[in-house]
């Protein structure tokens, strides 16, 4: 039996076009053995959730540098719930102050990484999340 491949959606919501981080992370995760879907810029929460469902990803990572995190994360969570896809994890990275992070964690958002995070930390985080799944 083949091992389950972890599938990750890396998305860039909103209007901000700074995709350096998203692309570096997408590539780094590929090099760590994950299957990564990258959807490009200017994604709405609806597009992100639709993609996540069709691709049956295990986890969504959003890169937000524009300060719109308090709008976008809750909206993606809401849509995941609405579509019965709460088993899909949501994490993110970008410029997110501690105070907002706390609020988002309480809503059920997974880890939010700061600028300057090593890709290996993200890899470790994802691997820990899916420990059981991988050893299936």
């Amino acid at each position: 039996m083949e091992k389950k491949k972890i599938k990750i959606l890396i998305a860039k919501p909103g209007l901000d076009g700074h995709d350096r981080g998203a692309k570096v992370v997408a590539r780094g995760l590929r090099d760590a053995g994950f299957e990564v879907i990258y959807t490009g810029l200017h994604q709405t929460p609806e597009m992100i959730v639709n993609t996540a469902i069709q691709e049956d990803v295990d986890i969504i990572g959003l890169s937000i540098l524009s300060g719109a995190h308090m709008t976008i994360f809750p909206e993606v969570l809401r849509l995941l719930k609405e579509k019965g896809a709460t088993d899909i994890h949501l994490f993110g990275g970008g410029i997110i102050p501690d105070e907002d992070k706390e609020k988002l964690y309480q809503m059920g958002v997974g880890k939010l990484f700061d600028p300057g995070t090593k890709i290996s930390e993200i890899v470790e985080y994802i691997n820990n999340l899916f420990k059981e799944k991988v050893s299936e």
Partner: peptide, 11 residues
């Protein structure tokens, strides 16, 4: 090498 993949056709 890594057996990972970057799936970008959707873009």
């Amino acid at each position: 090498f890594s057996f990972g993949a970057l799936l970008g056709d959707r873009i």
